[in-house]
Design a protein around this nucleic acid. Structure first.
Lengths: 144, 144
DNA sequence: GGCATATACTTACCTAAGTAAATAAAATAA
DNA sequence: TTATTTTATTTACTTAGGTAAGTATATGCC
């Protein structure tokens, strides 16, 4: 019986999250919090909308995680020109800690992919990125 | 800046789950419920432990999902020889519905992987399965 | 047999992600 | 200008996953 790709991805995703959470324990962070910090590290200050759009999650998910990151001092928020939006920024505390955390994460990730050669790792990313991308010009699902 | 594999997998996992949940709506099922039904379809009656071991999740997760599947009539449970364990079995209702649901899921999955050739799809599964496996051959849990 | 340990499952509580609806500010139409 | 619609964020509630601890049955050792 042919196994579904969906299940394979789902399982490896759970496995990765578990590994990352384990690695983050010493920093008292969770994987979703890390994802946002990593995002801010790359792009600098961002509105919440920019964050959830980049991360491909919904707005409420980001709200919740951001609130916790703010409470624990990793980020802070300020008003933008547009008073609806809130601009998120890393705290200096976070800025200082980021390199060590990123190191720890890459270390965990290396363990996860230690069974793959470098070429295989690159190939895997290429293939993953093709998931959910239409082959030919097909209608978008947005207005179903 | 090199993007982390962890994030790629995580994103595609969420995307797949969303797609699968959408496909399952007409059957009033959720993706995790489907995963268990699919498992039982493949292997027949199983104890809860066999289910969570095969699915690589923790026991409480399976308990919760199984309870809901039982309440909505998709499965039922009976005692085994060992009175601690509970043997899970598809209901005849579920047996009848399964082919249609599996069709619907495979259809959703085809949309997800429509950007990949057949060779790429096979390659992707091969690479995914190597994640979390140490370079020197490690044993699989229960490959059906 | 009786006590200690192990096993299968459940309960309680945490993070994470989703949808739907509420709120507040901005943009647009009348 | 005022009224309507759109947009950014939040709140409430649901599924889904995890860990830790509790319960009931099996198993081992004395």
């Amino acid at each position: 019986m042919k196994k579904l790709l969906f299940h394979e991805i789902h399982q490896k995703s759970r496995l990765s999250i578990k590994e990352v959470n384990e690695a983050l324990k010493e920093f008292e962070l969770y994987s979703s919090q890390w994802s946002i910090l990593f995002c801010l590290k790359q792009f600098g200050s961002m509105t919440q909308k920019e964050i959830w759009q980049y991360m491909n999650v919904e707005a409420p998910t980001v709200t919740r995680t951001i609130v916790r990151l703010e409470e624990s001092g990793w980020i802070f928020r300020r008003e933008g020109q547009d008073k609806r939006e809130r601009i998120v920024q890393l705290s200096t505390f976070a800025e200082q800690k980021m390199p060590a955390i990123e190191n720890r994460i890459r270390q965990a990730e290396e363990r996860l992919v230690s069974g793959l050669s470098n070429e295989e790792q690159d190939q895997l990313i290429v293939l993953l990125r093709k998931i959910g991308m239409k082959s030919s010009g097909e209608k978008d699902v947005k207005n179903g």
